[in-house]
């Protein structure tokens, strides 16, 4: 009889304690003045130039890339490009040069892709470059995730 009373008391105690035992219950609190304007806009941080400009991907073996054999090609220009270790881009006024060759008649992106190979270093020189031309080049490199160093001639 005594034992069953203890059991009953235990059940009552449990029911009383239930909200405390699940102690991690907090109210669902609403913030105001943050609709469409979050406290910190992570999309800008991640997609902008802050973190993305210097991604450190632990899965990429950068050392291994240098040992990669260049793809075979009959075109002599291609072979020269394969042996190259760096690409120089120069923006002068609204004209873009890749390795001192003025880009004419085709888009910068296409000309660059013909020369650039993974692992090459890229140097961008702002030689009194037009803002829009410069932005186009840098935006392209940022979007492609290509690291580059930048210098100015002024």
């Amino acid at each position: 009889m005594k034992k069953s009373r203890t059991g009953k008391n235990l059940i009552i105690l449990l029911l009383v304690m239930l909200p405390l035992l699940i102690g991690a219950k907090f109210l669902d609190l609403e913030l105001r003045n943050v609709k469409g304007d979050p406290l910190v806009d992570m999309t800008l941080l991640v997609n902008g130039n802050s973190v993305k400009a210097q991604p450190a991907d632990p899965d990429v073996d950068y050392e291994g890339q240098e040992e990669e054999k260049p793809a075979e090609s009959e075109a002599s220009v291609r072979i020269i490009n394969d042996k190259k270790k760096s690409v120089a881009i120069r923006v002068s006024k609204d004209q873009v040069y890749i390795d001192n060759q003025l880009i004419v008649g085709k888009p910068f992106e296409k000309s660059f892709e013909e020369i650039y190979k993974s692992g090459m270093s890229v140097e961008v020189t702002d030689d009194y470059g037009d803002y829009r031309a410069m932005k186009k080049v840098l935006d392209y490199l940022d979007e492609a995730g290509i690291f580059y160093s930048k210098k100015e001639t002024r």
Binding site: F26, L27, D28, L29, E30, L31, R32, N33, V34, P38, L39, V40, M42
Partner: peptide
Amino acid sequence: FVDVPEEKDETNAIERAIISNI
């Protein structure tokens, strides 16, 4: 930033809301 004045002392809930917002 806290919508209901009575909830201004609910530090843990506010912190949780900040995390969810960001």
